[in-house]
């Protein structure tokens, strides 16, 4: 029986269609639920941003096009000023926190990679805080750093430093310090990723560098760092998104002295959108602000990903080099051992 070319093509086409059908079936449960429960409410909110919308007084709702967005970008509107002000706070915090969120876990992972006894216990202890919810975090740190002498830290050092109070840009630094501390404490996720990445750095590369006369520092710079670049990239992405959306930490770590409740954009949005019925009339404007915020986050994170993908660092220490070096090293070692035994 002859299998014609046409038959074969038809068969391939059928197989392909079957595969696509199967794929469709497999991804539909997830996507149906996703669309129903996540996308549709979001789209509704998206529509609200083009309206003067009050959920409690539907007869007052009307379509006003881009007015809300114009108001968000209006520099003379005091509320919008607050919105954009929160952006600068958040970016400043990001700039400080993100490096810390990578360097501290990197250092810890580096130490861990030296395999001290009991390293599994250390690993567990360092990782543990990141499964604790933000609210509990806030309760713990809030009470530890309470302003007067009844906070743990103040009681220990005999001071009365008001950690968590402060007007914006005055004593606020202390409060941001505490928030940073709380954030670093929960860096467990990044820590573990980096620890594993460090473990996977090929030993051969390290030895090759060592043979070239490299000390610990050059080894770190030219071998370790490039090898763990994918892991660092992931950690960076995660930390960036987390910081841009920063809400829980500053919200809980707040004391009465502090009026700068609206310090990150997410807090700004949450405070008014979920703040109760008094703000209901401005739902449209708030949705517009949230959309603008989301757009900016998307832009920032796309920039970040492009930046990490684009760079291809060339170093001397690639796999091939190590193999070549390693070979010569083995030969040299054998000669040495032979000489010893002789």
């Amino acid at each position: 029986m002859q299998v014609t070319a046409i038959d074969k093509k038809a068969q391939q086409k059928r197989a392909k269609r079957k595969e696509q059908l199967l794929a469709f079936v497999l991804i539909s449960p997830y996507f149906i639920i996703f669309v129903l429960f996540t996308v549709i409410p979001f789209v509704m909110g998206f529509v609200f941003s083009f309206m003067q919308y009050n959920p409690y007084m539907p007869e007052q709702n009307e379509f006003i096009g881009l007015d809300n967005f114009i108001e968000v970008f209006d520099p003379s509107d005091p509320i919008s000023q607050r919105f954009w002000g929160s952006f600068s706070t958040m970016l400043a915090f990001c700039a400080v926190n993100t490096p810390l969120a990578i360097l501290v876990p990197l250092g810890l992972a580096y130490l861990l990679n030296m395999h001290p006894p009991g390293f599994k216990i250390f690993r567990a202890i360092i990782y543990l805080p990141c499964v604790i919810s933000v609210t509990i975090n806030g309760i713990i740190f809030g009470n530890m750093f309470a302003g007067s002498s009844s906070g743990l830290i103040n009681a220990w050092f005999g001071t009365e430093i008001k950690w968590l109070s402060g007007l914006p840009w005055e004593n606020d630094f202390l409060r941001w310090f505490v928030i940073l501390l709380a954030n670093v404490w929960t860096c467990g996720g990044n820590f573990v990723i980096l620890a594993a990445a460090l473990r996977d750095v090929p030993k051969s590369l390290n030895e090759a560098c060592e043979m070239d006369g490299g000390n610990r520092w050059t080894r770190f710079l030219y071998v370790t760092l490039p090898s763990i670049k994918p892991a660092v990239s992931i950690c960076l992405f995660n930390s960036l998104i987390a910081n841009l959306n920063l809400y829980g930490g500053p919200y809980v770590l707040n004391e009465i002295d502090n009026e700068s409740l609206l310090v990150t954009p997410m807090m700004f949005i949450q405070n008014f959108l979920m703040g109760g019925v008094a703000y209901a009339r401005q739902t449209g404007y708030l949705c517009a602000a949230a959309i603008v915020f989301g757009a900016i986050v998307i832009i920032l994170s796309s920039i970040e990903r492009k930046a990490m993908d684009g760079r291809k660092k060339r170093t001397k220490y690639t796999e091939e080099y190590a193999v070549a070096r390693g070979n010569s090293y083995m030969i040299a070692k054998e000669e040495k051992d032979d000489a010893k035994e002789a």
Binding site: M44, V47, F48, M51, P58, N61
Partner: peptide, 14 residues
């Protein structure tokens, strides 16, 4: 979804 949103927003007076 968009039409649902518009409906829920405008329709159904209190």
């Amino acid at each position: 979804a968009a039409s649902l949103g518009v409906f829920a927003a405008c329709g159904g007076g209190s």
